[in-house]
Each structure stands twice: as structure tokens, then as C-alpha cells.
């Protein structure tokens, strides 16, 4: 069993880390808002942690705090993400559907160019030699695991209270929700900022995990991959992002024997999943269960 974890530990932690990014897209989607901004906040959060972890001016603080420096980095990323999320969210969320998605794509690109031009972020090379929190990569599950369950709890809790009903009302029909007295803009911004904050903290945890941080963490491809976790996992189930991340993160590993052609097959699986599982894995499972129990009833 220990051999299993040695071989696949990194993969498992990566799945949870990526599922967190999937969940950060799930939050705005709960209120019907398709945002691809998560990866920009993930990138920024990572830079906050990387800079706080390596900048020479902060050396005394790191020495004084020891391990507690890491939570301080998360806090830094959280504060930055919330402030920036509100600043971007209020104007951007006047837009709907594809317009909002494209505005958030633009946001990610601007963040990318901006960090490439900031001397403190290390240019194209980025920041490396970020202090590690644990000896083994596998131990980072103690960072990502609790955050994942906290985020999952938040999604579940929100779904079961007034706020969640307001989110769903905005998702189903924004005009009607507004007419019934639901504060549509406020709810959209809340859902959006929750996603931004989750992505930012995930980034801050990921910088030590990955040891280096650069602008390649925040590419357009990565943001669509996060959306793919949600859609392929199932966008109406809280377990969807985890399922999607598990499939899409482990796929390149499973296809490793195919060497150079595995990325081609990765694309084939993405297309096939869209065509044959339009409700995602969780939706497909639910349909299967309904069919089985339906047959059972008839027999």
C-alpha cells in the first residue's frame, strides 16, 4: 500500500488541487454565471505565496512565524482575491453568458501580461526555490484536503439555505428573480467572489507544492481545463468537479505508454465525453441509476 502512495501520491494530491479549481468555477455557475477568471486568481494567489515565501525583505517575518507563514500567505491571497474579485465582479457581472465568459478570458490574459512585466514576479522565468511546507509532496494533502472539504461543505450549506435559493433563482431566470425581490447583482457578485477567493487560496497553497511559480500557471488552456472538470464531471452535482478532475488529471498518466500521441487521445476523450456524457459523469450515473431502478420497478 505504501508503494501505491509513493507512486501515485503526487497524482492524488494533484487531483484534489485541480478539483478545487473546478469548484471555484462551480460557485459562480451555481448562480448561472460562466466565469473563466478562476485561473487568473489562482495565478495571483500563487504569486502572493511565492513572493511572501522568497522575498528577502520578509525573511525576519518568516523566521519569526515558522510554519505559520503558510496560513499568512493564504490570508494574503484571500484578501487580494476578494478585493480584486469585487472590483472586477461588479462591472463584469452586468454582462451575461458568453460576454461574461469572454470578459473573464480577457481578465486572465491581462493578468498574465501584467505579471510578466512586474519585476517582483520574476518575469518569464518566474519565482523558484519556494520554501516547502512538508518533506513529501504527499503531505500537501493536509493543505488541499481540508480546503476541499470546507469548500464542499460551503457549496452544500449554501445549497440548503436562502442564499442558495437566491443563487438558483438567478440561475434559472434572472429577470424573474429580480422581480421577486432577489438582489440579483449582489448574489451574482457573492457567487463570483467565493470562486475567486477559493482559486486564490488554492494558488497560495500550490506555490510551495509545485516549488516554482510562473506565468504559465495562468494560461487560457488551463482555465478551459478547469471548466472541463465541471462540465465533464457534471455541473449539477457537487461531486462533479472532483470526478472531472480525477478523470482528466489521471488520463495523461494512464495514457503514458502511448508516449507522444497521448495528448492527441486526451483531446479525443474530451470530445467523446462531451458527445456521449452531455450531463457529465455524475449526470450519466444518475441517468443509469434511474434506468436501472425503473427496470427493477417494472419487473
Amino acid at each position: 500500500m505504501s508503494g501505491f502512495f509513493e507512486n501515485y501520491g503526487f497524482l492524488i494530491v494533484t487531483i484534489v488541487q485541480q478539483a478545487l479549481l473546478g469548484l471555484s468555477i462551480y460557485f459562480p455557475l451555481m448562480a448561472g454565471q460562466l466565469s473563466l477568471a478562476s485561473i487568473g486568481f489562482y495565478s495571483l494567489g500563487g504569486y502572493v505565496a511565492a513572493i511572501m515565501g522568497t522575498h528577502p525583505a520578509l525573511a525576519p517575518l518568516r523566521e519569526a512565524l515558522g510554519f505559520w507563514m503558510f496560513p499568512l500567505e493564504w490570508l494574503g491571497a484571500l484578501v487580494l482575491s476578494v478585493i480584486l474579485g469585487i472590483a472586477v465582479g461588479y462591472p463584469a457581472l452586468r454582462l451575461r453568458g458568453i460576454y461574461l465568459a469572454l470578459a473573464t478570458v480577457a481578465f486572465v490574459q491581462v493578468v498574465n501580461v501584467a505579471v510578466l512585466n512586474m519585476p517582483i514576479a520574476g518575469g518569464a522565468v518566474g519565482i523558484f526555490g519556494i520554501p516547502q511546507a512538508f518533506e513529501s509532496r504527499l503531505d500537501y494533502i493536509w493543505f488541499f484536503g481540508p480546503l476541499f472539504f470546507f469548500a464542499l461543505f460551503l457549496v452544500w450549506r449554501i445549497g440548503n439555505m436562502g442564499r442558495g435559493l437566491a443563487f438558483f433563482a438567478v440561475r434559472e431566470d434572472e429577470l424573474a428573480a429580480g422581480a421577486m425581490g432577489v438582489a440579483t447583482t449582489g448574489n451574482k457578485v457573492t457567487a463570483f467572489v467565493l470562486g475567486c477567493a477559493l482559486a486564490g487560496v488554492t494558488g497560495a497553497m500550490s506555490a510551495p507544492f509545485l516549488n516554482t511559480w510562473n506565468a504559465r500557471q495562468g494560461t487560457f488552456d488551463a482555465s478551459v481545463t478547469c471548466l472541463a472538470y465541471v462540465l465533464i464531471g457534471g455541473s449539477r452535482s457537487i461531486w462533479g468537479p472532483l470526478c472531472g478532475a480525477a478523470l482528466l488529471v489521471s488520463l495523461p498518466e494512464l495514457l503514458r505508454p502511448l508516449k507522444d500521441s497521448r495528448m492527441i487521445l486526451n483531446g479525443v476523450v474530451l470530445v467523446a465525453a462531451c458527445v456521449y456524457l452531455p450531463q457529465g459523469i455524475m449526470g450519466g450515473l444518475a441517468a443509469l441509476r434511474a434506468r436501472l431502478s425503473g427496470r427493477g420497478g417494472a419487473a
Partner: peptide
């Protein structure tokens, strides 16, 4: 199949992935 139009973003990106890696 009358799928969610959002899925077309992912499926077309999948095709892009195939072309680029090919």
C-alpha cells in the same frame, strides 16, 4: 443530442487539442 451549448466550448477545445498535438 440537444446538449448544453456550453459543452461546445469544451468539445471544440478538445478538437483544437487534437489538431495542435497532431
Amino acid at each position: 443530442r440537444g446538449a448544453d451549448p456550453l459543452l461546445a466550448l469544451v468539445s471544440s477545445l478538445g478538437v483544437a487539442l487534437i489538431v495542435v498535438n497532431l
